[in-house]
Write a protein that binds this DNA or RNA. Structure first.
Lengths: 207, 207
DNA sequence: GAAATAGTGTCTGTTAGACACTATCAG
DNA sequence: CTGATAGTGTCTAACAGACACTATTTC
């Protein structure tokens, strides 16, 4: 009996101005019927990142998404079936692709706000906490990946606020983002309801 | 044939005012005779961290040392024997314990300056690069762990300089360290050669 | 013109870098 | 008194937080 290796993925998205995590309802034991983050066993011929991408695609239909490694979790006893070491990853889903997430593999899959997660299978609660801490620490670098290619500064600020869980000052926020130098103004605007249209921006390669 | 799991450890130390990494000479194939970082297979009943501590103790005689997880490395082909995923860790050895490092397990073990490493077995070169980047990013939190419990500010500054590979301004360095609030002055001094004795300090619990 | 969101500048306190001299010890 | 390292303060530029009003659109 040897150690088995899995990958798990914390998939973040923004919906209704709140930060959400994709959970799947487990269709088999252990933790049958429990919510968990998507994941599965690593195959012999694929890298860890490829395995994470494959599982993400299988369970959510999302393809070609950058994933980043978070950490390995391997305490004995974390999986009642035996010794399983998982390499956890996280990924960010742009809000224009959230609806594509009809699960193909899992019994059920839906997004939950991070502020209102159910209790999770295995040690997945701990994994999500780690991923959230990482996302918060790197919000400036990662925030825009939760948005479509073109977005307004108001949308970006709401994403940051959803990630950090606190309100930000609009002028300080814009100054900070502007001096990163990674934002490029477009010629077009987004008109949303009954108010002044907002300029659209896109991200350049870093510096 | 399934995936096997190892842990590897990048053990840092300071010697001759230079940052060093412990390498062991491999006593068996693959990479027989090559230098590598210490590591080995994870046992069924131990956590990843316990495995890293055990390997560190077996190969270096160093016990009870804090290790931190770095990342998992698992590309297919990184080990010619088959599919092996390693969970890399790093640890910091205080300079008063460097001489304890007579290897008990490996054919040979010695420290190499990070600026002058030989080419390493497997993907260990990449692992050491990651560990070094992590250490540099967290030098303020971690630097003192490369020193004995009592140390002078000059010693601490030389440790930071060895880690960062660049000279630091003495006054700015002392101000920055002082305002962390984690340093406590002792009543004693260290007299080193023919110069003014330097006050000794120790670290308090954070804040 | 009311409602809604976009967009914009200043002041202030803190932080980080550049920079040079005096103090204390052994010999 | 020489050599060696310890120890100390100021000025300046960049950055971060607090804070309020005008602009543009729809209805």
């Amino acid at each position: 009996m040897s150690i088995r290796v899995t990958v798990d993925i914390v998939l973040f998205a923004i919906a209704k101005d709140r930060l959400q995590v994709l959970l799947v309802e487990r269709g088999k034991a252990p933790f049958l019927g429990c919510w968990a983050i998507p994941g599965g066993f690593v195959r012999e011929s694929e890298s860890l990142e490829e395995a994470a991408l494959r599982e993400l695609a299988e369970e959510t239909g999302v393809r070609d998404h950058a994933v980043e490694q978070l950490a390995a979790f391997g305490d004995p006893g974390r999986d009642p079936r035996g010794r399983v070491v998982t390499v956890a990853h996280y990924a960010l889903l742009p809000s224009d692709r959230v609806t594509l997430c009809a699960g193909t593999d899992a019994a059920a899959a839906r997004f939950f706000p991070v502020s209102d997660l159910p209790s999770l299978a295995f040690d997945h609660g701990r994994i999500v906490s780690h991923a959230l801490a990482r996302l918060r620490a790197r919000v400036v670098d990662l925030g825009f990946r939760l948005l479509p290619a073109h977005f307004t500064l108001g949308e970006l600020q709401r994403v940051h606020e959803a990630i950090l869980g606190s309100a930000l000052d609009k002028r300080n926020f814009r100054r900070r983002i502007a001096q990163l130098g990674t934002l490029r103004a477009l010629r077009s605007f987004r008109t949303e309801g009954a108010s002044r249209p907002a300029r659209l921006y896109t991200w350049q390669r870093s510096r």
